[in-house]
Design a protein around this nucleic acid. Structure first.
Lengths: 221, 221
DNA sequence: GAAATAAGCACGACCGGTCGTACTATTTCT
DNA sequence: AGAAATAGTACGACCGGTCGTGCTTATTTC
């Protein structure tokens, strides 16, 4: 949502314009803070204070709070892509990539990159029953994530690393469920137990399904 | 948090006092509204309007918003007990009770008793990173629910309906994860698919573990 | 190369509205 | 009659948002 500023946020000699830098910094901070306080619960004053910027300065970049919220969701998707999906794609396709994805996700939670937990889990529950553009964007993000997970499972099936009669959507659902529950419990109960259960859950599933044990990581417990 | 009113909220002839009735009605409404707007996001004005009562009327029953939030959590636990745990306890102990619990939970979500989804899932994600009495109460609620789930699994093991080497906590974790994910996805994506995956997930697990197929419900798909 | 111009950017002050909360008066039930 | 329950009212703080102004930076002109 670029209201003013250089086109595409770069100067003619290719450097990143000042405004573009503050924009990104603002969104990065917004992702962190919104994960703690909620996407709606985060006040513009709080965000502005954290950035050392005035509230009106934020309105120079986004025409409304909702526009900033949408941009924050997009930024969080980028970060998820870089932090979770990227590493997974560097693993070999198939069961190993599926495991790498799940593992990267749990690692991301365990590293407390976002002290508030998971941006998407938190905001998706927050906007469960709040129709509007933000909810739609979050639903789209969830849909894309689900489709990606299913594709990874599908690839493992097509490689013969998982049985052909496995229910792809079902397995993808269960993997995601393990992760969602992990981030919630890790913030309210014992974190290590939560992470262990999330990892062990997928490991058990793969052990039961995958005929080739060399594709799986060594035992966890 | 009873500030005024008849002791124990009953009159001398045993009827429920007026204030006690409005208190309960207020908490019931608060559970519904907080599930939609968040426990913190719900404003006292909105709650008072819904009840046809003035804001200050609420302060006669609870000294602060936080006190009302804590009472709301307690009320939600009561409802969960009546709606989910109660029906499960009427099923035969063991695998059948475990299934009844999971099934009652999914039914509860599917019936949209709370249009906003699940009170506990929503608020637990909301208070993930907000230390204080409310978060502590929610953590306690989650801990109790977890312990209950684990006890049901344990009972099934002790009855010999599940193998003795099954990881009780792990299985309980996975069952809960299926339910949590179901309520989230049912509000953002296709509800029926979410419920089906949640049910099928446990069914698959039990089919793989339970030596006696007569204890399981008939196939779902 | 320097001066002038224009655009991008951020600021402080301020708006109407709503938040949670307190205090007092009045109605309603026991 | 007296206690309990509720309404009315006011408050200070904070909410999202607007506006006019000045500083900084890039581009153009001389």
């Amino acid at each position: 949502m670029l209201i003013s500023g250089y086109a595409a946020g770069v100067t003619l000699d290719g450097r990143v314009a000042r405004g573009e830098r503050t924009r990104t910094a603002a969104l990065d901070a917004a992702v962190v803070l919104a994960t703690e306080a909620g996407l709606d619960g985060l006040s513009l004053a709080q965000l502005a204070d954290t950035l050392g910027v005035s509230k009106s300065g934020l309105f120079a970049h986004w025409r409304s709070k909702e526009a900033l919220q949408l941009a924050t969701v997009d930024r969080a998707m980028q970060q998820w892509q870089e932090r979770i999906i990227g590493p997974a794609l560097r693993a070999q396709v198939g069961v190993r990539r599926l495991w790498a994805l799940h593992d990267a996700r749990i690692d991301f939670y365990a590293a407390r990159v976002l002290p508030g937990g998971c941006f998407f889990a938190n905001t998706e529950f927050e906007y469960n029953a709040r129709p509007g553009p933000v909810r739609d964007r979050l639903a789209e993000a969830l849909g894309r994530w689900t489709a990606f997970l299913e594709r990874l499972v599908q690839e493992a099936v097509e490689l013969g690393e998982l049985p052909h009669d496995v229910d792809v959507q079902q397995l993808a659902y269960e993997i995601d469920a393990l992760g969602v529950n992990a981030v919630m419990r890790s913030r309210l109960l014992d974190p290590d137990t939560a992470y262990r259960h999330a990892r062990q859950g997928l490991l058990n599933r793969l052990r039961a399904l995958c005929p080739d044990p060399t594709l799986l990581p060594e035992g966890l417990s």
